[in-house]
Design a protein around this nucleic acid. Sequence first.
DNA 1: TATTTTATGTCAGCCTTGTTGACATTCCAA
DNA 2: TTGGAATGTCAACAAGGCTGACATAAAATA
Lengths: 169, 169
Amino acid sequence: MAERRTSPISGENLLFLTDEQLRKGIEAMFFAYRGFTADPDRILEQHGYGRAHHRALHFINRTHGTTVNNLLGLLGVTKQSLNRVLRTLIADGLVESRVGRTDRRERNLFLTEDGRKLERALSEAQRERMRSAYRAAGPQAVAGFRQVLEAMMDDEIRHQYASLRDRRP
Amino acid sequence: MAERRTSPISGENLLFLTDEQLRKGIEAMFFAYRGFTADPDRILEQHGYGRAHHRALHFINRTHGTTVNNLLGLLGVTKQSLNRVLRTLIADGLVESRVGRTDRRERNLFLTEDGRKLERALSEAQRERMRSAYRAAGPQAVAGFRQVLEAMMDDEIRHQYASLRDRRP
DNA sequence: TATTTTATGTCAGCCTTGTTGACATTCCAA
DNA sequence: TTGGAATGTCAACAAGGCTGACATAAAATA
């Protein structure tokens, strides 16, 4: 018994892998995600939009001129679902859809001035919460936060995330 | 300039608060949440259930004998929404609803043997992904992960999370 | 005791956002 | 020239949010 205590190997240093610890992480993810979406949700509501609109605006802003197909991969929904959202955003003048230059079957998507405005309002609200959380937790915690989240992603998504992450803004 | 480099104060050590860094955190949350729910979703689909059922099973399991009202607070939905889910779980024999002993207006909720079985399958799938992410990232990263998530929650939710977190299982 | 409040359940109806399936159009590429 | 890929559109459906209205039982209170 006493020998065990002197050895940091096996058991004791894996306490963070107990079901108990894992459960806390799971519940933290669930509750934190509520906070994560709360602020943009309030803004969206004023415009009669939902989270799907936010996601579309975000990724169109991130990858100017992206194609519908590429967007589908990022969002992980069907084209019919995305199309319904895109249609309203285009009709409302927040998104512009241009016929592709090299491949005219494709549509390249861009935010209009109004679209950029709303996207900025949404992302600024979300960043503000993230900023406050980052500040409260400190840089080392933030590094760990990102590491765990990346390890939690499906492989295919992690690649998409990584190429987006390293893209120049 | 050289003096700046010798001083860790101000500026340089706040790099983790740039909009760029915040954006990476936001996208990481979005993509990671997809992974977080992917495995339970597959199991739920086989039973004809959705995420709402998973959440109900999880929190009934966590707080045996909880009342409907308490559950509403944890889940953050309306009683009508919760009731629809509870009704099917009770009809399917996964949840038992007993009239309160001290206050007979209340209903105390419990998982049946079948309910515990499904809950275990769901949470084991989710824990397995979390375990793998925790293992890949290491204990220090996990501590940071939890810190940032907790800081991200709304105040009221954070209290609920904390009392649940510290509860004996 | 009489009244009000609380906890819960339920019905109806609406919205967003996901799904599948079918079909049309455009147009690149073999 | 023809097959297939990318996109759009229409219809129908389901899950799971929401609100509002109403019923019941029981507790709390005046």
